[in-house]
Simulated assay, not measured.
Amino acid sequence: MKLKKKYRLLLLSAIISVPLLLLAISVFMSIIYEVVFKTKNKGIPFHESFAYPTMLVVFCLSLLLLALLFSKSINALLNKINILNTTIRDLASDEKIPSTLEVTNNDEIGELIRSVNVLIERTTYRELEMKQQAEIQKELLNKLRHDINTPLTAIKLQLFYLEGQYTLSAPILDSLYQQIQYIADLTNEFNIQNTDTLESSYILNDEVNLNDLVETMLKKWSYLYSIHDIELIYQPVNKGLIWTSSELWIQRIFDNIFQNTLKHAKATKLEVSIENNVVILSDNGIGFDVNRKHEGLGLKIIEDITRILNINYTVQSNENGTIYRIQKPGK
C-alpha cells in the first residue's frame, strides 16, 4: 500500500474512531450505571453521579491509547527514514560499505530502500574492482622494479671491478653512475599503463581460500547481475578448499566467466558451487560452440591464465546452458 493511501486511511480512521469511541463509552457506562448503581444511589441521574467523571477518565485513557496506536505507525516510518539516513551517510564515508537493507513493504519507502540497495551494490562492485586492479598493478610494478634494479646493481658491481682493473677517468665513471642512478629513480616513479599481459608478468603464489574468494566475487558482481535480472546462486559444499596459487589471477578467471555469462549467455541464472575440490559455474543460457573460434578475448584469457597457473579448466556448452569446471591438480 502506498504511503499516501495508507495515511489517508489512518487519518480517516482517526476522524471516525474518536466520536465512535466517545459514543460507545458513554452508552456502555450509562447502561452499567442504570443496571448496577442507580438504585444504590437513590435514583441520581447519570450526569450527576460519580459515573460521569469516571466515563470522562475512561474516554481520555482511550484517546491516549488510540494516539499511541497511531503514533506507532508514524514512528515506524521515522525509524526507516533514520536507517536510510545512516546508511547513506555510511556509504558516503570512507569506512566499510554498509550491507543492503531488508525491504519489508512495497510503498514509497520500500522503493527508496531498493534504490539505496542498488547504490550499495554498485558501490561495492566499483570498490572491489578498483581494489583488484590496484593490487594487480602493485604486484606487477613491484616485480618490474625488482627486475630493473637487479641488472643495475650488477652493472654497478662490474663498473667497480673495471675501476680496479683498469685506469678509468673519474668523470666517465661518475657519469655512468649518475645514469644508473637516474634509471633506478625512474623505476620508482614508473606507472604501469597496461596490466592485461600475463605472459610477461610474475606470479606471486600464496594460499587462497576458494570459498572466501567466490563470496567476494559474488558480492562484486551482484550489482550488475541484479540490474540484468540474473540470479546468482552459491552452494559451498566444500568451504575449506585451499589452493596454492595467485588470488589476483584466479579472480581474473572468475571475472571473465562472470562477464561472459552477463554479456553473451542470455541467462537468467548463474549457479556457483564448490564440491569434490572442483569449482563449478553453470548458467542456463543459450550456450555456444566450444569448438568454434571466438572473437572475444574472455575465453582466451581464461585459457591463458589457467595454463600458466597450472589449473585444470574445462567448459561444456549446449542450448541448455554452459558449465565451467576449474580444478587445481593434486587437490
Rank of each mutant, 00 (worst) to 15 (best):
L64H: 03
I81Q: 13
I83S: 08
L68T: 11
I88D: 14
K38W: 00
L68H: 05
F37A: 13
A92S: 13
P45F: 02
C60F: 08
P53Q: 11
I74A: 07
L63K: 06
K72V: 02
K42D: 14
T39L: 10
K72C: 03
I88W: 05
K42A: 15
L78A: 05
T87M: 05
L63A: 09
S49F: 04
L84A: 12
T87N: 10
K40T: 11
L77K: 09
T39E: 14
F70V: 04
G43K: 00
H47D: 11
L56R: 04
K72W: 09
I81D: 11
F70K: 07
S71V: 01
E48H: 04
F59C: 08
F70C: 03
P53M: 04
V35L: 11
S49Y: 06
L77G: 02
E48A: 03
I44A: 10
R89N: 13
A51L: 01
A92L: 12
N41L: 15
L61G: 06
F28L: 10
N82E: 14
E34P: 10
L68C: 03
P53I: 06
T86H: 15
A51C: 04
Y33Q: 09
S30A: 12
N85S: 14
C60R: 03
D90H: 08
S49H: 05
F28N: 00
I31R: 06
K38M: 15
N41V: 11
P53G: 06
I32M: 06
I32C: 06
L61H: 02
K42S: 14
